[in-house]
């Protein structure tokens, strides 16, 4: 094996990929959240649909979409590979084990939380991305594809709103551990900065996920 493949098949090398892609996906969450805040503007979706047109036609965004897909693929694949290795490192389990007394629940259940988020992602992509790309969609007053109407329709169903809110809670717990954990994996632990990183990670997780969860709740209760 070359030094490169040795590095990225080692335990730290794989973690490094998970950390870097994780932080990249965090940056995607910010962009996605800010863009989608236009759902709250009181213009029956004119601004949101114009934004949708921009996002589906700008060449830079189109290229970033492929990088984003790769980010998800590497994040999920490497985390899965590490989980398999970690589960295989202890074949005989403890009869009594009190990890609850020395670590947080979210830190121990990143795989479970990630799986919930992954399932949500598939449903979410099917419902909006695929409908937008391949489905028959009406046009709004400006002649743009009316994704706003699709959103309004989806979020009028209670079970759909529930799925979104539960998934955002899972994402919040995933981020609370993941955000600060990524910095630790990159070797960035220093008494000057680590307390700030932990605080920012906590606030980031809550604010971003609450922002996303507010969208289905807004449509369900106020539209």
């Amino acid at each position: 094996m070359s030094w490169f493949t040795k590095t990225f098949s080692s335990t730290i090398g794989r973690k490094l990929v998970v950390a870097l892609t994780g932080l990249f996906l965090c940056s995607f969450l910010v962009v996605h959240l800010i863009g989608n805040l236009q759902l709250f503007s009181a213009d029956e979706g004119i601004a949101f649909n114009a934004y949708t047109y921009f996002m589906t036609h700008n060449p830079v965004i189109r290229a970033m979409e492929i990088i984003l897909l790769l980010g998800f693929v590497f994040h999920i694949y490497e985390a899965y590979a590490l989980s398999r290795r970690n589960q295989g490192a202890r074949s005989v389990k403890y009869a009594v084990n009190h990890l609850d007394q020395n670590s947080s629940w979210s830190s121990r259940n990143m795989g479970l939380l990630g799986t919930v988020i992954f399932i949500f992602l598939l449903v979410h992509l099917y419902n909006f991305y695929f409908k937008l790309k391949f489905g028959e969609i009406g046009l709004d007053a400006q002649g743009n594809k009316n994704l706003y109407a699709i959103t309004e329709e989806a979020f009028s169903q209670w079970w759909y709103v529930a799925l979104y809110v539960i998934s955002m809670v899972a994402l919040a717990f995933h981020l609370i551990h993941g955000f600060q954990s990524a910095f630790q994996t990159l070797g960035l632990n220093h008494k000057k900065y680590t307390p700030a990183i932990k605080a920012v990670g906590y606030v980031f997780s809550i604010v971003v996920c609450a922002g996303f969860a507010a969208m289905p709740l807004y449509f369900f209760f106020f539209k």
């Binding site: 670590s103 121990r108 551990h177 630790q184 070797g187």
Partner: peptide
């Protein structure tokens, strides 16, 4: 296995080795 930064190790370490060492190892 690999480290997932859960911190059980440092909590159980009888001599109090800090998790900061794992960050040093990573870098």
């Amino acid at each position: 296995g690999s480290c997932t930064n859960i911190g059980s190790c440092a909590a159980e370490c009888p001599v109090g080795i800090s998790l900061e060492n794992i960050a040093i190892l990573n870098r």
